[in-house]
Design a protein around this nucleic acid. Structure first.
Lengths: 291, 291
DNA sequence: ACGACTTTGTGCATCGGTTCACAAAGGCGT
DNA sequence: ACGCCTTTGTGAACCGATGCACAAAGTCGT
């Protein structure tokens, strides 16, 4: 089982019909029937599974583009960087879409995973904040490819309003509520500075948005029933730093207090914070003891 | 207990306890003396804890800026959006830095968390890709504030090389290896298009980088010992879509296939409840079967 | 037609993380 | 000094996720 090259079963097969390529997930591979247990009705997908499905979907799409017809759990798992048993269990939660001894039909699986994730319908989204990040998001290809549609890109800065980003024109954020209602926006993306994030969030929620993707480095407070996910660059960096530190400590063979050394200097204590604002009225009490 | 207002112990000096306080760590967060058990040596932090520490750190910093001296686990947990027992257990992994009946000293806790995460040292990072995303990252404040320093911003496009982003000048990515070695870069941030990501990753790793933050929508293959974290916008969106779909299905009271209806568009994909084995052998390859 | 081979789907043991609930620890008021 | 009150730190039950290992199911070659 080479891992590098993907086998393409029945390359010459090519059934006569299928005037339409394999790309569209809404293909019609097995247009036949559906056993009653096709979709587990009451069974909710585990969170961990949901978070991996998009990865599988991406790998599958790449395979479909390369003309791969069938894929085994081992191959797909390798492509997605997970254990194959985990992959099979994940997929089994969607139903029993595999052929023993063969694997999974790529196009069909794409369709099933898309459906499970709710990507077979259209999700209008609004991006608030047209700074570098907002622009990056607006340009991001993956945004549009699958089910997502940017209804608008908003900003509160009059100097930015009116400029064009890709096919979008930046609109003033005053129109947020109206826009959400009119376009049935279900997803709000917050790409504003930290200071405005909570206010924007509140407005989105008040207007009826119940799914929010937050890029601002703050913890958002929302009412019950609103789903917030955050993407936080600095948190990821800090996690990386932790592992890097751990590795370097281990490598030095002095895990006990390898990095303690770095901090041991009395003067080293307050190097972390951004110096200035750090102070607190009585914080002096603490540091005074030392100084 | 109001949740909104944080107690701020009067700035007035007090704190009679002797300089060394009590042998336990916290007392008065003495920067000097340090009991042997100050840091659990062999005890590794759980991953889940590591991923939350940055959040605590951010909330704590905000509090410190507002002059808060002491914080209880309930307050900090509320600010970070987690269960207070979880927070206490997380912090307990770092050591026993709290005062029963009082809470945690904000500044001291900031220091301890920073140290645990490895932020007391400097982490030079390089950003590869100076598109919208790369620029957004370069401008991102949180980047520099804590321990991270952008050694360089690289791009392969001659049209971009030379332009200035904030205090940085975009340099050509040819110099990647040299730069990594010379600046002891430990962290690489990949903000390139998906197609170049793996190649960039390989070069970073070859040059000695062992921590990588990947923004490109691909699964990176790396050698053992290299730590890769990914930030993937489209995955987050798809997870949001899933929950939104689930909520909407539930609200409609027709959980069985409420959303199926909404999808029916594409040629009534599956409507034949006829009992037969799913997807016939040959159908796996083609789709001539029905149409 | 049949047996060898491939691959799925899953039962089960295990592990890590979450949460509850409470005893121990310490400050604070009287 | 003393008892009350607040809050930490953690034991233990619980829950979900992971990964192994294997029987069932299906394909393919002869």
């Amino acid at each position: 089982m080479s891992r590098g090259s993907l086998p393409q079963h029945a390359p010459e097969g090519r059934q006569p019909p299928a005037p339409e390529g394999h790309q569209p997930p809404a293909g019609q591979f097995p247009p036949d029937d559906r056993p009653a247990d096709d979709r587990p009705p009451g069974d909710r997908l585990p969170d961990a599974t949901v978070s991996r499905l998009p990865v599988y979907l991406r790998v599958l799409s790449g395979m479909a583009d390369r003309g791969v017809i069938t894929v085994s759990s081992d191959q797909l798992a390798a492509g997605a960087g997970v254990n194959s048993a985990k992959l099979r269990k994940d997929l089994s939660h969607l139903g029993s879409y595999g052929i023993r001894g063969v694997g999974y039909d790529v196009d069909y699986l794409i369709h099933q995973v898309s459906r499970a994730l709710g990507l077979t319908q259209d999700w209008p989204a609004v991006i608030v904040g047209a700074g570098n990040l907002g622009r990056a998001l607006a340009n991001y290809g993956g945004f549009v490819t699958r089910g997502f549609r940017i209804a608008a890109l908003l900003d509160s800065d009059p100097g930015i309003v009116g400029s064009r980003i890709g096919r979008l024109t930046v609109r003033h954020s005053d129109g947020l509520e109206d826009l959400v209602v009119r376009h049935q926006v279900a997803i709000g993306v917050i790409a504003t500075p930290a200071g405005s994030a909570q206010a924007v969030c509140d407005r989105l929620v008040a207007a009826g948005v119940t799914s929010i993707l937050n890029f601002a480095p703050v913890v958002l407070n929302v009412a019950e029933g609103v789903d917030v996910r955050k993407v936080d660059l600095s948190i990821e960096l800090q996690i990386l730093a932790f592992h890097a530190q751990r590795r370097s400590a281990e490598r030095n063979g002095a895990p006990a207090d390898g990095e303690l050394r770095a901090v041991s200097g009395p003067a080293g204590l307050r190097t972390v914070p951004k110096g200035a604002t750090r102070l607190s009225p009585a914080a002096a009490v603490g540091s005074a003891a030392e100084a």
